[in-house]
Amino acid sequence: MSGKVTISLAVNGETIEALVAPRTTLADFLRQDIQLTGTHTGCEMGVCGACLVLLDDRPVHACLMFAVQADGCAVETVEGLTHRRAIDDLQKAFHERNALQCGFCTAGMLVSAYGVLASGDELDRDSIRDALSGNYCRCTGYESIVDAIETTARLRRQHMEKEEA
């Protein structure tokens, strides 16, 4: 399509200047234009959660946004969260609990989990299940994912209590 638009945004802490077609979604921009393929698309209509990324530190569906709408924003993907070691504990808990099989939903799950863990809310299994209501996983049956997030929440709480003590 003609009429590409210049955008400037921070992706995983790096400034990116790019020319994008107005109709390019943020998900396609991340995956195709700048090759951050850790973010996936499963439905392209905001239902499955595979495309969740952080926009100014809040989880958003990258498939429901145009890249041009992210102009001037800070976007963070699973690659960025991994690089700055923001979810080491979460990834370790997922790994040990086998809270992933095919891995296609995993980036979205981690972004959702990052969001709910950062909220500071008291988490129990039901609230974790609620928080994952926008993340579809076909492989695991969810229980292991709930376990991994619950474990991470507990360990973070223990860590904070230790710090305070």
Partner: peptide, 20 residues
């Protein structure tokens, strides 16, 4: 645990969908 799951957890999976 699965050694190959770490890659998937870091967004380093290589699916056909990703291939160029």
């Amino acid at each position: 645990s699965r050694p190959n799951a770490k890659r998937l957890l870091e967004g380093r999976g290589r699916y056909v969908t990703d291939l160029v």
